[in-house]
Design a protein around this nucleic acid. Structure first.
Length: 221
DNA sequence: GACCAGGCACATC
DNA sequence: GATGTGCATGGT
């Protein structure tokens, strides 16, 4: 067993023991995951949850109703999530695809194979790799590991990566190291986010960090 | 008040 | 291909 594989598995066990199961995604339906994935781009989930609550309150968490909503009304509702103009456009692009391609039926989309679905999502303007993979893993329960800034920061600080590694490369590290289980991918990424929010922040709190027993950044001279 | 947050597209070199 | 920039609210 390679060192990195062993370390990633030990990370997982440690994080799970510390934080407990995260039970992601924090949304009720695959469609909510899709909307939330756009809204959370470079944005704290607390702000996103306010925007999601607005949409839910207005009974708009439905592809057809959301697409029919005028732009002005939509931007007003998602305002708490920030970047509301650009996110309104991105939501529109996603909804247009979902309706043109699948008549708004998320289950039909889910029936496609992972590679096809990922390629189609990436073809939508406003959906990059992290957003596509979040939708695939958490919305469609596909076997795709999600990489984000927390993931890179944590691995970098624990010397498993060089700084600024490419998304695909980081994803490959996890894919190669972990058993191919959707639930494991789901939980692992959620746990990395939990760690990133609480300890492995831009200014890290390594003293209290559950991964402090592993070699990490502050041990450098 | 500064810094940060579960990115992405686009311009420019 | 690499680097810089705009997008914007709200929590810490």
């Amino acid at each position: 067993m390679s060192t990195i594989r062993q370390q990633l598995l030990e990370f997982y066990e440690t994080l799970l023991a510390h934080f407990g199961p995260q039970n992601w995604w924090p949304g009720d339906t695959p469609f909510e995951v899709m909307v939330g994935a756009i809204l959370t781009q470079n944005t704290n989930w607390k702000n996103v949850s306010k925007a999601m609550a607005n949409l839910k309150q207005a009974n708009l968490l439905d592809p057809h109703r959301l697409l029919e909503l005028d732009r002005e009304h939509l931007t007003a509702l998602i305002k708490p999530a920030g970047y509301f103009n650009i996110k309104a456009k991105r939501l529109h692009n996603l909804l247009t695809w979902l309706i043109d391609r699948f008549e708004g039926d998320v289950e039909s989309a889910k029936a496609l194979d992972t590679e096809t679905l990922r390629a189609e999502l990436l073809n939508i303007k406003g959906i990059g790799r992290e957003t596509a993979d979040s939708i695939l893993l958490y919305g469609f329960e596909k076997l795709i590991f999600v990489v984000d800034t927390y993931t890179c920061r944590i691995l970098w600080r624990h010397r498993l990566l060089d700084e600024d590694m490419d998304y695909d490369y980081v994803q490959e590290i996890f894919t190669d190291a972990l058993p191919a289980e959707v639930q494991l991918y789901n939980e692992y990424h959620a746990l990395l986010v939990a760690l990133g929010k609480t300890y492995c922040r831009p200014r890290p709190n390594c003293v209290a960090c559950p991964l402090s027993r592993f070699p990490h950044c502050l041990e450098d001279g």
